[in-house]
């Protein structure tokens, strides 16, 4: 392996890795709001709204993220939606992961025993208060873990925005392979950066999980 070359290209890859983190983090935050909205819509009293939310989740989960990205970026202008590549990556990433995350959040909420809901309601707490004081604190652990899994998928998915020429990690890696003819060196370094990002996400998730489930250790 050509160590000198690796040292030379490292700054470029670090810079590109930061774009990967940036785009994934923004998509995660927006995705969380979209997911929460979807969870609320799915429990709406009005059937067409429930049906619409369910269909949205089904369609997004049933089609490739890559095709969604191409559709919005290249097809968007046809319906008056013009986004720059970075914004497009964030928006499509958020709307995509939001659908998956809404299922994760719903699953976590449903994992709390029904007796908890009954006990809270029997004390006189309303539906929202029960969600706030009783259900969400108990669902938080599972929710954090499943959102963590999705965050990792989001990081790996973000490599696809290289196709619409966002200069993130995979884009930079492909360019450097082409210009240096040293695929092993470039791959090793860029893989290492993905691994660092993913392990950082896992570390944060584990920290938050422990905080949210402290009561089970006491």
């Amino acid at each position: 392996m050509d160590i000198n070359l690796m040292i030379e290209i490292a700054p470029l890859l670090v810079k590109a890795a930061w774009v990967t983190v940036d785009i994934s983090a923004r998509a995660l935050v927006f995705g969380f709001f979209i997911a929460s909205a979807l969870v609320a819509l799915r429990t709406s009293r009005i059937p067409p709204i429930r049906w619409l939310a369910r269909s949205y989740i089904s369609v997004v989960r049933g089609t490739p993220y890559f095709v969604q990205l191409l559709l919005v970026f290249y097809g968007g202008p046809a319906i008056g939606l013009r986004l720059d590549p970075f914004t497009c990556g964030v928006v499509v990433g958020a709307f995509n992961i939001g659908a998956y995350m809404s299922e994760a959040i719903r699953g976590a909420i449903e994992s709390v025993e029904s007796g908890q809901n009954e006990a809270s309601r029997s004390l006189g707490f309303g539906r929202l208060e029960t969600l706030q004081y009783i259900i969400l604190p108990q669902a938080a652990g599972l929710m954090i873990r499943s959102v963590g899994v999705l965050a990792i998928i989001l990081v790996k998915n973000s490599s696809l925005v290289s196709i619409i020429s966002v200069i993130e990690l995979t884009y930079q890696a492909q360019r450097l392979i082409g210009s240096t003819y040293k695929p092993l060196e470039v791959f090793t370094l860029s893989a290492l950066m993905y691994i660092i990002i993913i392990y950082a996400v896992m570390g944060i998730v584990e920290f938050l999980y422990r905080r949210a489930t402290r009561y089970t250790f006491l």
Binding site: S158, S159, T170, Q174, I177, P183, F187, A191, Y194, I195
Partner: peptide, 21 residues
């Protein structure tokens, strides 16, 4: 572990341009 912690597209590029060499 390596296949699971890196993106598919990066792996494809490596195989395509790397082994293609």
């Amino acid at each position: 572990w390596l296949f699971m912690t890196t993106p598919l597209l990066l792996q494809l590029y490596f195989l395509y341009f790397g082994i293609g060499e």
